[in-house]
């Protein structure tokens, strides 16, 4: 039961590994980027779940609420930044894939290696 109680860590670990597998194993550059995106999203989940306090509310001052229990807002703020970084990486990665397609006519890793070898 102890292991099930930590289910959000399992989600994090499984998602991380699925993404990582796709990055390593898939020869298609777009699929690699999708894997990379999954990989990063898993880390976002790790941060967001750690900030949740059981029974805690949003950290906003409310009139009349005596000693309310707040969730930790900092991990969410951090991950907002990390999401922006992730989007920029994805945009740049896709941009490079478009350029690769223009230059090589393919987005399969082994095709590109084959063309470079000639």
């Amino acid at each position: 039961m102890h292991l099930l109680g930590l289910y959000h860590y399992w989600v994090f670990a499984v998602l991380l590994m699925i993404g990582f597998y796709a990055v390593i194993a898939k020869p298609n550059l777009i699929k690699k980027l999708i894997g990379l995106s999954l990989f990063q999203s898993a880390v976002f989940l790790l941060y967001i779940t750690m900030g949740k306090v059981e029974g805690g509310t949003a950290p906003i001052l409310q009139a009349g609420a005596e000693n309310p229990l707040y969730s930790n807002p900092l991990p969410q703020v951090l991950i907002l930044t990390a999401i922006v970084v992730g989007i920029s990486t994805m945009a740049l990665g896709l941009g490079i894939v478009v350029r690769i397609k223009e230059e090589y006519g393919s987005i399969e890793e082994h095709d590109i290696q084959e063309i470079d070898r000639q």
């Binding site: 991380l16 990582f20 990055v23 550059l29 690699k32 990379l36 990989f39 990063q40 880390v43 790790l46 941060y47 750690m50 991990p75 990390a82 970084v85 990486t89 740049l92 990665g93 490079i96 894939v97 350029r99 690769i100 230059e103 090589y104 590109i112 290696q113 470079d116």
Partner: peptide, 27 residues
Amino acid sequence: DRRALPAVFKYLIMGTIGATFYLIGIG
């Protein structure tokens, strides 16, 4: 040089994995 493009793609993938590992660590 067009060969820069696959090279930079590889760098992007590996660099992002490196940075994300660092992010997991500090998390």
